[in-house]
């Protein structure tokens, strides 16, 4: 007889089954992520503010996430990047979340996997941001205009942000890019070149007032945003 303390339940076909080993499947963030993911200042890559968070959606005593703590002002042109998230019928999506990842003003990523020591790191700039959309479905980031980054085969990419979109009804994260209308390099960008010409405008933000760039993200419909396979 085995001692009860030495007995183990039978193995199930589950997360620990070696026969099933592989990428963990994606699931939706659902509608209730606001107290767990977007921190105050998560959408402000430049200074200290509450941008990106939605503390209006839960009681203040349940704010356990930290506030951003900038160390100083990053180098470069301060810009706002904003737009609406819209569903296939053009209805604003008020319960989605947008993230950005970008290079600093010199075109260097704050990452161990960007080993180009000849391009300076900005000690005050990380380049990752997160914003919950507001009640009108608008996302808004305050950041620095990114510099140009090399692409494959000796090409140079135009200034751009990598963007991820999450939401209720989105089983998978949607990955896209934001370019800036009229800036040098868009015509020779190696990623934009992979996009059918008729759809490129869905990735290009347009200037809208002082330092502000606007790009609506369409989940469907005639102006559906281009999303990339990764």
């Amino acid at each position: 007889m085995t001692d009860p303390a030495d007995r183990q339940p039978d193995a199930r076909q589950d997360n620990q089954d070696p026969a099933l080993f592989g990428q963990t499947p994606s699931q939706t963030v659902g509608p209730f992520f606001h107290y767990g993911l977007p921190w105050k200042g998560g959408a402000d890559l430049v200074g200290k503010s509450d941008m990106g968070a939605r503390p209006d959606l839960f009681a203040e005593e349940h704010w356990v996430l930290n506030l951003s703590a900038p160390t100083g002002t990053p180098v470069g042109e301060v810009i706002t990047v904003a737009g609406r998230v819209l569903d296939a019928e053009g209805v604003p999506v008020a319960d989605s979340m947008v993230e950005i990842w970008q290079a600093n003003a010199s075109g260097r990523y704050r990452s161990v996997d960007d080993a180009r020591d000849d391009v300076p790191i900005d000690p005050h700039f990380i380049g990752f941001g997160r914003a919950a959309t507001d009640a009108e479905g608008v996302y808004r980031f305050r950041t620095i205009m990114p510099g140009r980054v090399p692409g494959p085969g000796g090409t140079m990419q135009a200034p751009h942000l990598a963007l991820s979109l999450f939401g209720r009804g989105l089983i998978n994260r949607l990955a896209t890019r934001v370019y800036f209308g009229g800036l040098p390099g868009n015509d020779e960008d190696p990623v934009l070149a992979c996009v059918p010409a008729a759809r490129r405008a869905t990735l290009i933000a347009e200037p809208r007032g002082e330092g502000e760039w606007w790009l609506d993200l369409h989940l469907g419909g005639p102006a559906e945003t281009v999303f990339f396979a990764l």
Partner: peptide, 23 residues
């Protein structure tokens, strides 16, 4: 998912430093 899942296939593009880096 009906009004939120994109209808167009995802576009294939080469991964660059943008995709292979992160904070």
């Amino acid at each position: 998912t009906a009004l939120r899942a994109p209808s167009q296939p995802r576009v294939q593009a080469p991964q660059t430093l943008t995709e292979t880096t992160g904070p």
